[in-house]
Design a protein around this nucleic acid. Sequence first.
DNA 1: TCGATTTTGCAAATTATTTGCAATATTCGC
DNA 2: GCGAATATTGCAAATAATTTGCAAAATCGA
Lengths: 146, 146
Amino acid sequence: MRHGITHFKDLLGGEGYSWTRARSAVLTVLTTVPRPLRAEEIHRALRDPRINLSSVYRALRLFESLNVVHRVELGEGAARYELADDYRDHHHHLVCDACGRIEDVAACPVEAAGLTRHIRKRTGFAVRSHVLELFGLCRPCRRDAR
Amino acid sequence: MRHGITHFKDLLGGEGYSWTRARSAVLTVLTTVPRPLRAEEIHRALRDPRINLSSVYRALRLFESLNVVHRVELGEGAARYELADDYRDHHHHLVCDACGRIEDVAACPVEAAGLTRHIRKRTGFAVRSHVLELFGLCRPCRRDAR
DNA sequence: TCGATTTTGCAAATTATTTGCAATATTCGC
DNA sequence: GCGAATATTGCAAATAATTTGCAAAATCGA
Ligand SMILES: [Mn+2]
Ligand SMILES: [Mn+2]
Ligand SMILES: [Zn+2]
Ligand SMILES: [Zn+2]
């Protein structure tokens, strides 16, 4: 399990950052809940009233800069944050318009389709990253809708 | 030319909305500039100091609800807006990280790859819409970088 | 043209996020 | 473990994009 909480402690220490109550607590929430959370939701889940929302934002910003956390924007007005996975450098989501459920997409379709190469050839544009989020109805909601 | 400004006038009239100075001016800017603009940029381009920024926002919100305008979110903090095209119901962009240039992507790779069907089969999730934006270096910037 | 209805300008509110700064926590060498 | 040096935090205030209430102005249909 590469993701013990001590793994993060070592990682932060190695980069010259302190291992603090706020940072540890935020990471605990993120390792516990398997979906992208808003800063506000993370803060509420902390259970430690001493930790301020600003510290949650500061921790998230730091983790993002260290590629420990990925920001997910779903056009909701507030950003969401999830732990970066070890095996893939990014992934995409299926977002249910009815119930709000967020599922991970197994493989990156953009890579699978060789889209980067195709675009480079056709337009000369060198794609380095992309954002892809899919919206619709999850299976349960689809059945309910019938 | 399906996109004379009077086309929009008729469209708004048909939906029971007035043809006003603010709405007409916003549409003129959007038909003139061929890339997604921020509300602020549209407002600045209006050339009519009588029109308030709130009216620009209100016009954009209305146009979006009528599918006359599409909102484009590129993670910049502010949304961008562009005229919806007649022939495709949506399209994607190549955004240059160096110079900020925004190019349209010719065909939708998600549809081309049959991704919707694939996901439905594999996961039961019914995709109804998606957001895809690609970032990297445009051809000129790629050359400069060498 | 006129009254009914819609829209606008303006200022203030909202909301997510960031920041300054003094107080507190963490780190590290002893 | 202890204390100084440094990093981080809480708190309140600042930002920045967008929205909204309301009275005044514009548009529309007859
Ligand atoms: Mn995910
Ligand atoms: Mn476009
Ligand atoms: Zn659902
Ligand atoms: Zn460029």
